[in-house]
Amino acid sequence: MKTKPLILCSLFAALMGVGANVSSFLTIGGVPITLQLLFAILAGGVLGSRLGAFSMFAYLFIGLIGAPVFAQFKGGVGSIFSPTFGFIISFIFVSFLVGTCIERWGNNRKTYLFAGVLAILVNYVIGTNYMFAALQWWADAPEGFSYLVAWSWMGAYLPLDIVVCVFAFTLLKRLHHALQPMLVMK
């Protein structure tokens, strides 16, 4: 890998670490606010599908080897057993799919709308299913916990994730114009 793509991938991996830990300081109505979805979308949109996914994989790897980059300054292999670890895995796919959409259909509102819906859907499907499995198999599920309850919990986060998604694509549109000459990585 050349120097410029490696630096940009490292930058987005570091931004994910920062975005994960914003929740340690910022909550609204008991709902922690993270910027992970924002940075996963931006990584795919700015770096492209392959490099965006690589930067999210680098973030995951850095956290698994013990750096405190996951939410609440956690890290290590034990994080795999956290019910929210599926969301971390999902960011690799979110970044790849957003990058793929933009590579195939260009920078336009229809692409951004489709990629945004896809990003939230993939994030929720992978993350919520992992959370449900974790709470059923190795974590202590609350009394009366069911698959429907797991999905209903996500309803509290959906409005925030929609706002983050809209902000990400608004920012991405501006970044594409400003950074495009610099991002040519051939």
Rank of each mutant, 00 (worst) to 15 (best):
W153Q: 13
F85E: 13
M1F: 11
A14T: 15
H177M: 06
A119D: 06
A67Q: 03
L97E: 08
L42R: 08
I65D: 01
Y130G: 06
L38C: 11
G116H: 15
F12W: 09
A53Y: 13
G144F: 04
A141K: 01
T128K: 06
P159S: 07
F70T: 05
V69G: 00
F87C: 05
N108I: 02
V77T: 03
A150T: 01
G66W: 08
S95C: 01
L148M: 04
T3H: 03
L175M: 10
V164T: 14
A139G: 10
G116S: 12
S95I: 02
A14L: 11
F54V: 13
V18C: 05
Y112V: 06
A71I: 05
I102K: 13
Q180E: 07
Y147H: 06
T170W: 10
L37D: 04
V94M: 02
S10M: 13
E143Y: 11
F81D: 00
T27C: 07
P68L: 07
P5V: 10
A20P: 07
I92A: 12
G52M: 09
M131S: 11
A20C: 06
A139Q: 14
V94F: 03
L42G: 11
G106L: 11
F54Q: 14
F25V: 10
A139D: 07
E103T: 12
F169L: 00
H177T: 13
F169N: 00
V125A: 08
E143K: 09
G78R: 01
I33F: 12
G63A: 03
A13N: 07
I41N: 08
L64S: 01
T34G: 08
V164W: 07
A67P: 01
F12Y: 12
I80L: 14
G29R: 14
A53L: 13
Q36R: 13
G155L: 12
H176Q: 10
W105N: 04
K186C: 10
I102H: 09
F93D: 04
T111K: 06
R109P: 03
F167M: 11
C165T: 15
K74V: 01
F39K: 05
G155Y: 04
G19M: 02
L47W: 02
P83C: 04
A43H: 04
I120Q: 01
I7N: 10
A14W: 03
V122S: 02
G30F: 07
L8E: 05
G116E: 13
A156Y: 14
I89E: 00
L135M: 14
V31I: 14
I102S: 03
A58L: 15
S82A: 14
T170M: 06
L160Q: 09
K74I: 00
L51E: 14
S55P: 05
S152F: 02
G144Y: 06
L135Q: 10
Y157A: 12
I89P: 02
G99I: 06
R174Y: 04
G17S: 01
I89R: 02
